[in-house]
């Protein structure tokens, strides 16, 4: 019976997430459109609501091209490797006090660990295409991922020290009982988290692995149709997951004034967090590879460590 419930939960989350991705893309295009003095998609359905659905349909109907010189097996499996872990993240998220999947007592570690597998799919995809631009994109991707995984993990440690648990729900409960969201006491960590999450997700201004103006979309240059859709899906699924994690860690999860149900607050905070990304996409030029690495190792990691030390002192001092 339990198994059946879990499966049902997984299917519902998958469906919700697919819908979420659809509208996240529309939301992104609308936001960026508004910032760029143009209306954005507005032809399919009212307010362009069906635009992404039409796009996905188009992708599904397209021919699935496999380059002759590609490493075929890896080329085929890479999008799946990229997508599966991004979806697996959702297993440990809690959307409301009573809506949650696995109540892991190492929730944060699970989220960050599983998230890192996505990159493997991206790398294999880029490498197996046997395209020089894809290869360069993948190499950049690895370097970037290795560099930014560290500050991402380190930024969370402060919260773990304060709460004394790795469980995601307990972190939210702690914020409830303390009456303060972690964004205030852990502001430094929040900034580090935002920046390194952008880099982890390869979003502008850190979208170097797919930099379309120099590497012609990088790792997914050779992908088309359904498999390309899978990569896009993985990217946005991952993005939504990262936003959800940020919501739980820093913005108090489902907490909020009582007049709205918890999961609505949760969704609103996620949207806010994602809006921040889109805003940056519309505003900033792309950073340079060298600067990006330097920034991670020389600025973000020391900052994150500083935050950990400071938090530890405060924790000991406050008892």
């Amino acid at each position: 019976m339990d198994l059946l419930l879990w499966t049902a939960y997984a299917v519902i989350i998958l469906m919700l997430m697919l819908g979420g991705v659809t509208f996240a893309i529309l939301f992104e295009r609308k936001v960026i459109g508004a910032m760029q003095l143009r209306p954005g998609p507005n032809r399919h359905g009212p307010w362009g609501l069906f635009q992404t659905i039409a796009d996905v349909l188009k992708l599904l109907l397209k021919e699935d091209i496999i380059p002759a010189a590609a490493d075929k097996k890896i080329f085929l499996i890479a999008p799946v490797i990229a997508f599966a872990p991004a979806f697996a993240i959702y297993a440990a998220l809690a959307f409301d006090e009573n809506i949650y999947g696995a109540d892991l007592n190492i929730g944060i570690l699970y989220l960050l660990g599983v998230a890192s597998i996505t990159m493997l799919g991206v790398l294999m995809g880029g490498w197996s295409s046997n395209n020089k631009y894809s290869l360069l994109g993948s190499i950049r991707g690895v370097a970037q991922m290795v560099s930014y995984e560290l500050p991402l993990v380190l930024s969370v440690v402060g919260i773990v020290i304060l709460v004394g648990s790795l469980n995601m729900r307990e972190i939210v409960f702690f914020q409830e009982s303390a009456g303060i969201w972690f964004i205030i006491p852990q502001f430094l960590a929040f900034v580090v988290y935002i920046i390194s999450s952008i880099a982890e997700l390869n979003r502008a201004p850190f979208d170097l692995p797919e930099a379309e103006s120099e590497l012609v979309s990088g790792f997914h240059t050779e992908y088309s149709g359904f498999r390309f859709a899978f990569f896009m899906l993985a990217e946005y699924t991952y993005a939504i997951a990262i936003a959800a994690i940020a919501t739980m860690l820093f913005l108090g999860g489902w907490l909020g004034p009582a007049f709205l149900p918890g999961f609505v607050w949760f969704a609103l905070k996620m949207v806010l967090f994602m809006f921040l990304w889109f805003w940056l996409t519309a505003t900033l030029p792309r950073a340079r590879v060298g600067d990006l690495m330097n920034y991670s190792w020389k600025v973000l990691i020391p900052l994150a460590i500083l935050n950990i030390v400071a938090t530890a002192f405060i924790k000991v001092w406050m008892g």
């Binding site: 190492i106 570690l109 699970y110 960050l112 660990g113 599983v114 890192s116 597998i117 990159m119 493997l120 995984e149």
Partner: peptide, 10 residues
């Protein structure tokens, strides 16, 4: 388990 994923796969 998660360390296995982080270290070996990641």
């Amino acid at each position: 388990g998660i360390v296995q994923i982080m270290v070996y796969v990641g």
